[in-house]
Computed example of a mutant assay.
Amino acid sequence: MSEGKISVTFEQDHDRLDALFTTFQEQKRKDFAKAKEAFVAFKFGLQRHIVWEEDVLFPKWEENSGMAEGGPTQVMRTEHRMIGDCLEAIHHKVQAQDPESDRDEQRLLDILKSHNMKEERILYPSIDQVISDQERAELYQAMKDIPEERYRTCCGSGHS
Rank of each mutant, 00 (worst) to 15 (best):
V8M: 08
F10D: 07
E11W: 10
E11H: 05
F21T: 02
T23V: 15
T23H: 11
F24V: 03
F24D: 07
Q25F: 04
E26C: 10
K28I: 06
R29C: 04
K34T: 14
K36T: 06
E37T: 15
E37D: 14
V40L: 10
A41N: 13
F42W: 04
F44S: 12
V51H: 07
D55V: 13
D55P: 03
P59S: 05
E63H: 05
N64K: 13
N64R: 14
S65W: 01
M67S: 09
A68V: 10
G70D: 01
P72E: 05
T73I: 07
R77P: 03
R77T: 14
T78R: 14
T78V: 12
D85G: 03
C86I: 03
E88T: 08
E88A: 09
A89K: 15
H91P: 03
K93R: 09
V94M: 11
Q95P: 00
D98N: 05
R103V: 15
D104R: 03
Q106V: 12
D110T: 12
L112D: 08
L112A: 03
S114A: 15
S114I: 15
N116I: 04
N116W: 07
R121W: 11
I122E: 11
I122V: 13
L123K: 08
S126P: 06
S126C: 06
I127S: 06
D128K: 02
Q129W: 08
Q134C: 08
R136I: 05
R136F: 00
Y140V: 14
K144Y: 05
